[in-house]
């Protein structure tokens, strides 16, 4: 098997498993503590990766322009803080499977932005994909309603 495919599957498995572990953790610890622990662990892992040669070393941070930093700070606020807080919070009210599936539809938001703001055109397959995704979300939202 190609190494990149193996790593991609490993990534999907790890992403898929972390939400179940988090839900188990949130039985015993508050939401904010759970988010803080995952952020600290992620931060240490990323710094470790850069430290062992995953980039040009830690000193390279100094050379990153402020505007580029600002873009990533906004991305971090939306993804790692707001998105993660809402995602983990939803575990308290609905099943982790339902929450993960619904929140995994985020590429549709990016595509919607690309179409409406950037004026990009969608292919037929993308239209089909959006339709299937919306059907899936509808099924999950309807789950347990009756």
């Amino acid at each position: 098997m190609d190494a990149s495919i193996f790593l991609s599957i490993l990534c999907a498995m790890a992403w898929g498993t972390q939400s179940v572990l988090l839900k188990k953790a949130m039985r015993d610890i508050p939401l904010s503590t759970a988010i803080l622990i995952t952020l600290v662990t992620n931060f240490l892992a990323l710094v470790f990766m850069i430290g062992i040669g995953g980039g040009q070393g830690l000193s390279a941070f100094v050379d990153i322009p402020m505007l580029i930093c600002f873009y990533f700070m906004i991305a971090g606020f939306f993804n790692y803080l707001l998105g993660r807080a809402l995602y983990y919070s939803s575990f308290r009210f609905i099943s982790v499977t339902q929450s993960t599936a619904i929140s995994s539809t985020y590429p549709i938001i990016s595509v919607a932005f690309a179409v409406t703001v950037l004026g990009e055109k969608l292919s037929v397959l993308q239209f089909v994909g959006i339709g299937l995704t919306l059907c899936g979300v509808y099924l999950l939202l309807m789950k347990g309603k009756k």
Binding site: I74, G83, L86, S90, I102, Y106, P107, S110
Partner: peptide, 17 residues
């Protein structure tokens, strides 16, 4: 509330990239 939060999480995850 849970469903709304997961949909909003998706919006946030979609805006970040």
């Amino acid at each position: 509330r849970g469903q709304t939060e997961s949909v909003l999480a998706s919006v946030c995850f979609g805006l970040a990239p």
